[in-house]
Design a protein around this nucleic acid. Structure first.
Lengths: 211, 211
DNA sequence: TAGATTGTTAATCGATTAACAATC
DNA sequence: TAGATTGTTAATCGATTAACAATC
């Protein structure tokens, strides 16, 4: 849809976008019309130059010296970048408490995630999560039929690769992997690993050094 | 406790440890006694040199050319590094489905996380999570009394900073922040931000570029 | 005009990857 | 001995931070 008319945005910058968006929304609510990079940097405890670069990478116009950036326009450009305006439909496999947490997470809904179905090996046993739960063998069919492009995996580690293969067979393009397994996928597919244990390792090691 | 007798381990390397540990455990179960860096790299889809460097940073002895590393010893060194052997006690604030997911996550338990209490503004309303739920005003007291050093925050954004201040007052040293708020803390405290929206931004942007 | 803020170019930092000699 | 694998040093890559001229 949009060509390479914008500069490339780094993964790190992309991850800062939700923070900017959240902050800009607050400013907008408070009727603030323009904001400078140093001000945002101060509010979010980031480096001023970094904020300016991030804004420059996203904002279609140019900031005004002494004034800064128009809040609403900047916000729109950011939401555009993340596909906020065209909602991202996804399926989730697994229906434990983690799945429930993801399905009900408000901030994800704000960023355009819409979970259209959940799958479980035993749909009858599964907790209700506010989304209908289907048998896992229907994954590929449903994804293909509904043209879903995002698959979220929250099953036990042993089933992760099987589920992933089914999602790939269903035409998924991006996988959000909450299992500790390193998945094998064709290279055109993006896998984003979310590993709580990996994060916890950082905390744990810090304490060990400190105490 | 342990001085700077080991080389410094990067955050990135630290985050790979849980993957190594998981893989080494599998090898150990299969009675494999030694393993080489290239083999682990292959299994986990990592760069061979990176694995070797990570091992060198953790392993107290030296690997043997042509043979590799002894599985059990290497595993022990890694678990030692993460404080696996001395369990990490923590409290969690908030008692929604995310809290429940964290409390019941098996891989976190395997890595030594032990959640000793959960807090909620209205303990009566809160779902049972297998841990007793206390009123939020008891946070500081309990942390101090039980010498807890890790605080996990899963409350709504609006309460995040207040809760964080209470944890800090209770003597916490590391905060695991699941809210989208950038917390203000004294500089001796480590804050690890877990932001689902930030991760989702990466997936969303990838799809936007691809489709 | 003076001063705040911009955008850009250069320097720094941190992590990964490549190259290669040492060793079992 | 030959070959696989090690550890180390150097090159590369990516991201952050600093320096500074341009501009409203």
């Amino acid at each position: 849809m949009n060509e390479c008319n914008q500069q490339v945005i780094t993964i790190q910058a992309l991850q800062r976008m939700p923070y900017y968006i959240q902050q800009l929304k607050i400013l907008k609510e408070n009727k603030v019309e323009t904001v400078s990079a140093p001000r945002i940097a101060e509010l979010l405890k980031l480096n001023e130059v970094q904020v300016r670069k991030d804004f420059a990478a996203v904002y279609t116009a140019k900031g005004k010296p002494k004034t800064g950036f128009p809040v609403t326009e900047l916000l729109n450009n950011m939401e555009e970048l993340l596909g906020y305006h065209n909602i991202n439909e996804a399926v989730i496999v697994g229906s434990g408490s983690l799945a429930r947490a993801i399905i009900t997470d408000e901030s994800l809904q704000n960023f355009g995630l819409e979970i259209v179905a959940a799958f479980d090996l035993n749909p009858a046993d599964a907790e209700s999560c506010g989304v209908k739960i289907l048998a896992s063998d229907k994954i590929s069919n449903l994804c293909r039929r509904m043209k879903i492009h995002i698959g979220i995996i929250t099953v036990p580690a042993a089933q992760a690769q099987v589920v992933c293969d089914q999602l790939v067979a269903g035409g998924i393009l991006a996988v959000w992997n909450f299992t500790p397994v390193r998945l094998s996928v064709p290279e055109y597919i993006l896998v984003r690993n979310e590993n709580l244990a990996a994060s916890f390792a950082i905390l744990s090691n810090h304490l060990k050094k400190t105490l």
